[in-house]
Design a protein around this nucleic acid. Structure first.
Length: 281
DNA sequence: CACGCAGCCTGGGAGC
DNA sequence: TGCTCCCAGGCTGCGT
């Protein structure tokens, strides 16, 4: 389940293996993979050919490849199960291969593989260096343009629960269910804590926790649970060994030994320590 | 405008 | 063995 650290691992792989190369062929094997490219699959294929990949960029969980020519980029979101794989041409097709790009040097090809098809790729204009479809997404906490004070003020204005706010990509991008739970545990906050009751120091602590868990994950190459997520070379990350609460129901909290509990939240799961993270009254 | 939630999608696993 | 149901969850679109 790719969140910011996993997407960053993929971005680095793309920067290393794909930047500077000219796309000469493209094939869309499943229309849903390009559903956000409103002009259709044929248009996507026609317009991507002949373009040189300039670099690999990322904001939150989105990543994009600026292309030569017009101010345009190949934008990708991995969804839950998407992978961008750099493989030798002619390698056996993956079961869930959705899009394939070939390069003029005849070397490795880029494949978008996605079992659950929540991910997508598209071509989009760049506005001030950012793809237009993600203009409404807030910077992620590792960008220079992320403003801690502004985030704190926006959070306190909200009338919602702190975990909902963490998952709201218009407030802070890149945080998904796994790292939200991990950061809340580290900051000793219950997921249902009303945002308007958070003090500025507590918000600073929460932001530090978000950055800490993501930095740790990045150092280990991302998180992987069911091998659906792999980096650009097809190698799984190993961060799941370091998770403190996510997926650890009934196992002891490493701080106090209390069994971790799982609660239903937003049609998914929240994991927390009932002692370290006291539910608000 | 702010907030919350259904729906999208597939395969693995549990239960019968 | 084979069927049904549940679960994973980021994001969009829509209702309140």
């Amino acid at each position: 389940m790719p969140e910011l650290p996993e997407v960053e691992v993929v971005r680095r792989g793309l920067a290393q293996w794909v930047a500077g190369r000219e796309i000469v062929s493209a094939e869309v094997l499943h229309p849903r993979a390009v559903r956000r490219h409103l002009a259709g699959a044929d248009d996507f294929v026609a317009r991507v050919k002949g373009r040189v990949v300039i670099s690999a960029e990322r904001r939150g969980k989105y990543l994009w490849l600026p292309l030569s020519g017009a101010e345009e980029a190949l934008l990708a979101h991995l969804g839950m199960s998407g992978q961008l794989l750099v493989v030798e041409p002619g390698s056996p097709p993956d079961k869930h291969l959705r899009v394939r790009l070939g390069f003029g040097d005849g070397g490795s090809e880029l494949r978008f593989v996605d079992q659950r098809t929540f991910g997508h790729v598209m071509l989009s204009p760049l506005l001030d260096g950012v793809p237009s479809p993600i203009a409404h997404i807030a910077p992620d906490p590792f960008e220079a343009s992320f403003d801690d004070d502004r985030f704190a003020a926006a959070l306190r204005r909200r009338r919602t629960e702190v975990k909902r706010a963490l998952l709201d990509q218009s407030l802070i991008s890149g945080v998904g269910n796994i790292y939200a739970d991990e950061a809340l545990w580290l900051a000793r906050l219950h997921w249902a804590r009303p945002t308007q009751t958070l003090t500025r120091p507590k918000i600073a602590e929460l932001l530090a926790a978000v950055r800490e868990v993501m930095t740790a994950a990045l150092h280990q190459g991302g998180t992987s649970f069911d091998s659906l997520y792999v980096n650009v070379n097809g190698e799984s990350g190993y961060f799941e060994r370091s998770l403190e609460v996510y997926g650890r129901r009934d196992r002891p909290c490493s701080r106090c030994g209390t069994p971790i509990m799982r609660e239903a939240f937003m049609n998914r799961s929240s994991f927390s320590c009932p002692r370290c993270q006291r539910r608000p009254r």
